[in-house]
Design a protein around this nucleic acid. Structure first.
Lengths: 215, 215
DNA sequence: TGGTGGTCTTATGTATACAATGAGCCGGTT
DNA sequence: AACCGGCTCATTGTATACATAAGACCACCA
């Protein structure tokens, strides 16, 4: 694996995981030394992170981790809705119906009760996203969704997802998968709309509660 | 201006303009020498172009200009439809109605008859796109649209746009702008759908004719 | 004569050295 | 004492030198 890939992967994990907080200054020499690579591959990693929108050059001299506030989350969800509704429609038209029927069964039988219910949930979502990408079979759409998902990882960290919401989300995904399997494009798109509406509401509520609670 | 920016801008122009054909191999030393920069900024430029999807590492050893075929164009237009329909809706909800009324007038009065009718057309479209971005006021959506538009420049080169289509396109944009000015989100979105359907049909027809005619 | 192995070339990936620019600080002057 | 100017230093941007690996070509063997 290339050193620049390692630097990118490490910084990505740290930003998404919160180890590098928004506003943190990323000096080239400092980070290169910390990650054990030279400045050249580190600069490449920073460039990729900048293209993703995870870091930005605040001034021509200082690169910082970008912040995400409630308005950013709304904007991300506007893009997400545009892309995922289309993806759901396209998957309903050309996807592998059997695969989505199988996914729907998986959502129906999902058990999120245990302590690692969240892990099970994200594993299911990951399978669903991969199947969706494969069904849509559109590299440009997948690339656009990849960027959105990259930001969503950070958004999820900001919002504490409660078990009730996780269960509801699974049910919503089950409906989407079923609609795709039934080749009902309208239902797939509208169920996606509903799911994203609920997800956004939950996140913003959680954010509001956190803000009020911690201040 | 930084050397890496110049290298990126030059290569972007050459790829979009056709000076660098799809499949062209971009050796680092060769291109660095040609553009008068060293390999370091040139690699940064190639990285940005790769993020845009304009070049790709065919093998771990050779970077080439990516190709665009009819399927790519269809995929790009699927993403474009998703993003631009949403953008039209959002602009209708929150855009500057007066600015879009003014744009609609501009489309109504556009004169594409002259020899530089195409330039006038693209100038109008550019104004419209900028106004749309401003109205939507969503950096994530704008970034996604930027990628799509980058590819569209190449798509337009493949299709020879005839004057009739240009005039029809202006009329379609006039309707979209009017709908946004009237805050009619449904009409704005549907007019966008119609416009993109016509634009794609025209491009694919042109491509088919060219393919048959030149073979 | 065809295949295989090895070497050699040439490309990329990485590290480091050099250049240039901007920011911060200190001292002088008003 | 405050403000302006210059200087220094740190940081980025660029160039180049070095390491490494992949691919091609040639020679040798079957």
């Amino acid at each position: 694996m290339r050193a620049s890939d390692r630097a990118y992967a490490t910084l990505l994990d740290e930003i998404q995981g919160g180890a590098l907080s928004p506003g943190a200054v990323l000096g080239e020499v400092e980070q290169a030394a910390r990650l054990g690579v030279s400045r050249t591959p580190l600069r490449e990693a920073l460039g990729r992170l900048a293209a993703d929108g995870l870091v930005a050059q605040q001034s021509p001299r200082v690169t910082v981790v970008t912040a995400i506030d409630a308005d950013d989350i709304r904007e991300i969800f506007e893009v997400r809705r545009a892309l995922e509704e289309s993806a759901a429609r396209l998957a309903a038209e050309r996807g592998d119906a059997a695969a989505f029927a199988e996914l729907a069964r998986g959502f129906a039988e999902a058990d999120l009760a245990g302590p690692d219910g969240r892990d099970a949930y994200y594993a299911l979502i990951g399978r669903f996203d991969r199947q969706l990408d494969q069904a849509v079979s559109n590299d440009y759409l997948t690339a656009a969704l990849r960027t959105v998902r990259t930001h969503l990882v950070r958004v999820r960290r900001l919002a504490r997802d409660n078990p009730d919401r996780l269960a509801a989300s699974v049910a919503e995904h089950r409906l989407i998968a079923s609609a795709i399997a039934a080749r009902d494009a309208d239902l797939a798109a509208h169920a996606t709309h509903v799911h994203l509406h609920n997800a956004l509401s939950n996140i913003l509520d959680s954010l509001h509660a956190t803000t009020k609670g911690s201040s």
